[in-house]
Design a protein around this nucleic acid. Structure first.
Lengths: 151, 151
DNA sequence: TACTTACTTAAAGTTTACTTTAAGGCTAAC
DNA sequence: GTTAGCCTTAAAGTAAACTTTAAGTAAGTA
């Protein structure tokens, strides 16, 4: 089973321009061309693209993704480096997840805050909800206290 | 307790340039100036900055963050819209976390893959580990199968 | 045959969020 | 009195990942 550039683009939510751009940048070394010059994508190529999207989604730059792909092309001598790269990305990803979790706490607080404000009819009145004020202290207190202590 | 621009920059991991840039862009309407023109940051301003960092970390653009801040300045008439904004951000954030989780699965697979390759001494030999091949199917199979079916 | 989809090169344009440069001036602390 | 840190405006520069434009060609499908 093979796919045209248009089919792949549609399914992965990219444009054909982007796929050609990736190809030009050396990110798709395994994509072959038909006798008439059309790009032919195999399932292996789709796997590559899925990994590219994954690494991009982790915040890796295209040039670093290219470096990884170059290593793959080089063969078994780069196995250790590739393993190290993914281990590093895992740590990075774990950090990102922690940060998103911290953001989520703040956003949940703000939702509670504005829900209370909507109920009471004004921002000023929210302070009378002691429970919310404690929550605020819990979420903002740490960061701000650190600032105060070291100032 | 108040802080200078330099103190705030240091603590929040920003530069003084960036803080002045934010100020210029209207993101820090509550920062006042001393008689000699120095910016004076209060704890309230730090809270603002923490929220700005949070929204930025969620992928929101500065101009949308500014819109939020403008709403805050407008007062109680915008409470409903602000609540809606945070609810939307929560959904967005939940999606992001799901995606990171999906990325993590792929990265864990790659770590297992290259660990096995390192152990066996070659990429080619990895395919003999049936367990890994099943894992690969589980992780890549779905996405690729969807492609195949609808092609 | 007409239409859709694909191909090429090469350069210019876009967006976001800064960062840098320039050039000069004020003020608080040591 | 000098140094460190702060201030101003205004414009130019940077990086990343595309996107767009131009201009022409070729192959496969209804």
């Amino acid at each position: 089973m093979t796919y045209s550039i248009g089919q792949v683009a549609k399914r992965l939510g990219l444009t054909t321009h982007t796929l050609r751009y990736y190809d030009k940048e050396g990110l798709l070394p395994s994509v072959h061309k038909s006798s008439s010059g059309l790009r032919i994508f195999t399932e292996k190529d789709l796997e590559w693209l899925i990994i590219i999207e994954c690494l991009k989604g982790c915040g890796m730059h295209l040039k670093d993704i290219k470096h990884y792909i170059d290593m793959c092309m080089q063969g078994d001598s780069t196995i250790a480096e590739r393993l190290a790269m993914f281990k590093k990305q895992k740590e990075h990803l774990a950090l990102q997840m922690e940060q998103l979790q911290a953001h989520m706490e703040k956003i949940d607080y703000k939702i509670a805050y504005y829900t209370e404000a909507a109920k009471r009819g004004s921002i000023d009145a929210v302070q009378y909800n002691k429970c919310l004020m404690k929550e605020k202290e819990r979420i903002f207190g740490q960061t701000i206290k650190k600032l105060t202590e070291e100032a």
